[in-house]
Design a protein around this nucleic acid. Structure first.
Lengths: 214, 214
DNA sequence: ATTTCAAATCTTGTATACAAAAATGTTGAC
DNA sequence: GTCAACATTTTTGTATACAAGATTTGAAAT
């Protein structure tokens, strides 16, 4: 992505705040946070700019930085875009994927299966992530790969819990099989559809989850 | 998009630098620029953070900000992603577009035709932009709309010149007709394909342009 | 001439200072 | 009790100050 040699405080702060748990609408108090992190306001404000562009905070001039947790509607929208981005990756990867990557993919999938058998959602999550990253990468379009990764990361907190749904891991597995098959046959359209559906299901599952929590 | 009440210097600077003409690899000297714009380094650096996240500069810790003009390869990649994003917009819009928007679309298209007849690339460019924005909007997914708009803006400087190609305006027009027809028939797949091809052509034209200039 | 090392200079990253806008609190009129 | 006007306090936005890392320069050694 961009310079990840972990250096400036500003960039570290971005991650800290990104991962930190703030409630929607909350104002990020510059002095309080700067004390909390033991830094001055300057690097903090630079981090705010990045967070604002990522859409994690609203930066209202002369008012402050307000965290912006996406609501149900926006989340559905984001999942929809994720589905389309993954579909795009698949479409391109179907034509461009290397034999080696194809092997890696089936390998990752096998480990997913192991995790399913062991009923181990955490491992499943990890191997699933590897599976998808391979496809991003094999799109042969590093700009696309970056964009997909960015959104993927953004959705992480919302995707994670879904594997706890009864039967979700099994379903996800069988969808993976379809994806691998389509990729292997080199059919762009089929691959795109398989991936779009796979991710769209996540959005729907999330929707259900929201409904149950309300 | 985000807070556009045009207020803080930092945000204004972002635009100034975005639009400014810098050559690839050039280092953005903080003191020189701050003198040039008549501001201190603080808001400038905040602007740098935003530019970095947009991919317009590389921010190398303790080294500085270096402008990052996309090379031919990256540009092709970006056009490819633009094509997929527009295809996604079209796919969704085919199911969601309102009658009113459909009218606006044919209207915009009619004006495009007038511009073609008048051999007026500038007007064509403007109306063409309106045409596409309507489709982004009618995807019914404002997150997607934003992402598409962002990349559209980013590619602006590279898209513009292409209309000068002989026959490009005519070709573009007939592609528009296909898009409108597909949308009108409510066929998602067809619409997506029409839009993808339409934008992909731009990438190819650009590729040609690059080749002639080298 | 080339290389090495260190001093000097420049540039960035962060802290602090200050001014102006926004928020808060207080007083007084009605 | 409510509202308005004004004073007070916070808080942001920007400028400046300072320290540490990077770059350049130049002299000495090979």
């Amino acid at each position: 992505m961009d310079q990840r040699l972990a250096d400036t405080i500003a960039q570290d702060l971005e991650e800290l705040i990104f991962d930190g748990t703030f409630s929607d609408g909350e104002r990020l108090d510059e002095v309080k946070l700067s004390e909390q992190f033991g830094v001055s306001r300057t690097p903090l404000r630079e981090a705010f700019q990045r967070l604002a562009l990522s859409g994690l905070v609203d930066l209202i001039p002369r008012r402050g930085a307000f965290v912006r947790q996406p609501g149900p509607v926006e989340l559905m929208e984001m999942f929809e875009v994720m589905a389309e981005l993954e579909a795009a990756c698949g479409r391109l990867a179907a034509l461009r994927i290397s034999d080696e990557a194809m092997k890696d993919l089936t390998d990752a999938n096998a480990r997913c299966q192991e995790a399913v058998d062991a009923v181990d959602p955490d491992t499943y999550y990890l191997e699933n992530e590897r599976f998808h990253k391979i496809i991003y990468n094999q799109s042969g379009n590093s700009f696309l790969e970056q964009e997909a990764s960015k959104l993927h990361r953004r959705l992480k907190p919302f995707r994670r819990q879904q594997l706890r749904f009864r039967g979700r891991m099994d379903q996800s597995m069988s969808e993976h099989e379809n994806i691998v098959r389509a990729l292997d046959s080199g059919n762009p359209e089929e691959t795109a559809n398989a991936l779009r559906d796979h991710v769209a299901v996540q959005g729907e599952k999330f929707h259900n989850l929201m409904a149950t929590l309300k």
